[in-house]
Design a protein around this nucleic acid. Structure first.
Length: 502
RNA sequence: GGCCCCAUCGACUAGUGGUUAGGUCAUCACCCUUUCAAGGUGGUAGCACGGGUUCGAAUCCCGUUGGGGUCACCA
């Protein structure tokens, strides 16, 4: 037998944002398909009309593409197995449903939701497991409903659903690629609704039909689907189809180990994008939640390409994994440390432009938006920022004058002599040539030594007047980048404001 | 509650019968240092429990406990 081309899919419902758990599911499907030189497909499961959200489909696909996950077939890119949106495939489900009806593997049910609810409460009260009571199971299928009754309801045009007839007391078994053999007893399974009264299929029905027709070889999905496996398997059996291989992924967890949810933090990929995480970081991080290379590898940072090369379903773990933001932050820092300055410049330029459009600066806009200036700032700040946008926000003194001085730092570093020393040193800086980190450092030491002082008495105040804060990059390099004019201006401004405070 | 899944440091994990149980994040200490980072060195910290199997169990089996998922005309 010739090995068939691997086909995997991510099948979200368009109810809003992309969940990070969804991203990981999509990623694993993508990685596996690409590793196997196969295809990754996106299908939209919009069979619940009431939950459908405008634009959600497009956002889902856009967000996946942001992460580098591009589908070979999707509603937006087309393909040979379309349509890729379930609401456009209703005639297909109808057709297959008819087949089940004919084969007596499914039946009409006219029970109203009130009736169902009543029945459920009754069973609960009696201490029984709530289950459909098979009121409308026809006589010829082993039930108690005469066919005349069913025909009568049909003729009256009463709304109905179609349920699958789950065989009694048989065992349903399959081999999960991650979990190994899993077995269920059919007596614990309800007669699942396949077609809703609005004519739309339920998830269980539509996904089985589509997974078969679209010829997927591997279904990789979240563990929350494991309990519905027997229903799906039974459907494959009813149709005489060979089921694809299944892999149920461990869940992503909140810090309290419950299923990752809103309320306990951000779950939308868009939230993390907004905060400034890069796609490389998010993809890397989410990939490592439940998968690792194994065999004593100590690598932590992976590119999408590397993940494709190294991924395997065999190395996906079984236990749920907590989404830990601290490690995510560490990864983002690793990413920033290694990203070429030119790339960072490209992403921060628009941010800087936006800042400049709403804030005045005495600095030369031409200079501070130049590549060479930005590169200097980046190299000085690279190891001190957590996100790329912080090159602009966290280092704003490279672009704007400090508006205030860190109170605590001033208290700690100012003495009655400080302003005088700053004034004197300022005149040294005025004639310094060239104005560089080396010459500034040398000048400062020469200035301080004859006076019997330590460099620190000037270093700290200089940092504060130049940046407004007590922390930051190497002082001398910072002053060099800022330039003589700005430094002199800031010293004199600082002397004025801080002496007034004392 | 029924059914199903799961169980190594606080978190992510390596480990597939013989290891001083390893790595990363976080944390603590020290070093470096004008600050903040980064970096370096070292430390604290784990096999849920109880039975087996075996010369030998984190590793295999059973049970207990614990956690999670799921029980819709939602996916």
């Amino acid at each position: 037998m010739v090995a068939q081309r691997v086909r995997t899919r991510f099948a979200p419902s368009p109810t809003g944002y992309l969940h990070v758990g969804g991203l990981r599911t999509a990623l694993y499907n993508y990685l596996f398909a690409k590793k196997m030189k196969g295809d990754f497909i996106i299908r939209i499961e919009d069979t619940d009309q009431s939950r459908k959200v405008e634009d959600a489909q497009h956002n889902l696909i856009k967000t996946l593409e942001w992460a580098g996950i591009v589908a070979d077939e999707s509603p937006e890119h087309g393909g040979n197995y379309g349509p890729y949106v379930q609401s456009e495939r209703l005639h297909i489900y109808r057709q297959y449903c008819d087949r089940l009806l004919e084969d007596k593997n499914a039946y009409y049910c006219f029970s109203t939701s009130e009736e169902l609810e009543e029945n459920r409460e009754l069973q609960l009260k009696q201490g029984l497991q709530p289950k459909y009571n098979r009121k409308w199971l026809p006589e010829e299928m082993g039930g108690s409903m005469p066919s005349g009754e069913i025909r009568k309801k049909m003729a009256e045009g009463v709304r109905y659903v179609i349920r699958m007839k789950v065989p009694d007391y048989i065992s349903v078994w399959f081999e999960d690629m991650i979990r190994g053999p899993v077995e269920f007893d059919s007596s614990t399974i309800d007669d699942q609704v396949l077609m809703k009264s609005d004519g739309f299929p339920t998830y269980h029905f539509a996904s089985v039909i589509d997974d078969h027709l679209m010829e997927f070889t591997h279904i990789i999905r979240g563990e929350e689907w494991l309990p519905s496996m027997p229903k799906h398997l039974l459907l494959y059996e009813f149709f005489g189809w060979e089921p694809p291989k299944f892999a149920h992924l461990p869940l992503l967890l909140n810090p309290d180990r419950s299923k990752l949810s809103k309320r306990q933090g951000d779950v939308a990929v868009e939230d993390y994008i907004r905060k400034g995480y890069s796609c490389d970081t998010i993809v890397n991080f989410v990939a490592m939640l439940g998968w690792n290379e194994g065999e004593g590898t100590e690598q932590e940072v992976y590119s999408l390409q590397e993940l494709i090369e190294k991924f395997s379903l065999e190395r996906v773990g079984k236990a749920g994994a907590v989404f830990n933001v601290e490690k995510l932050n560490w990864l983002e820092k690793q990413y920033i440390k290694s990203r070429p300055a030119a790339d960072i410049i490209r992403t921060i330029k628009p941010l800087l432009a936006a800042e400049l459009s709403r804030k005045e600066t005495p600095l030369s806009v031409e200079v501070i938006t130049s590549d060479s200036y930005l590169e200097a700032v980046i190299e000085l700040m690279r190891e001190r920022v957590g996100f790329e946008h912080e090159f602009v926000t966290f280092s704003s003194y490279f672009f704007f004058e400090p508006e205030a001085y860190e109170e605590e730092a001033v208290q700690k570093r100012w003495t009655p002599e400080t302003n005088g020393l700053l004034r004197e040193f300022s005149s040294v800086l005025e004639t310094l040539d060239p104005f560089s980190a080396e010459t500034i450092e040398a000048a400062l030491k020469d200035f301080v030594a004859p006076r019997g002082l330590k460099p620190a008495v000037l270093i700290h105040p200089l940092r504060i007047v130049a940046s407004g804060v007590s922390f930051g990059p190497s002082l001398y390099h910072m002053l060099e980048v800022l330039g003589r004019e700005a430094v002199l201006r800031r010293i004199s401004k600082g002397i004025g404001q801080i002496s007034a405070k004392l």
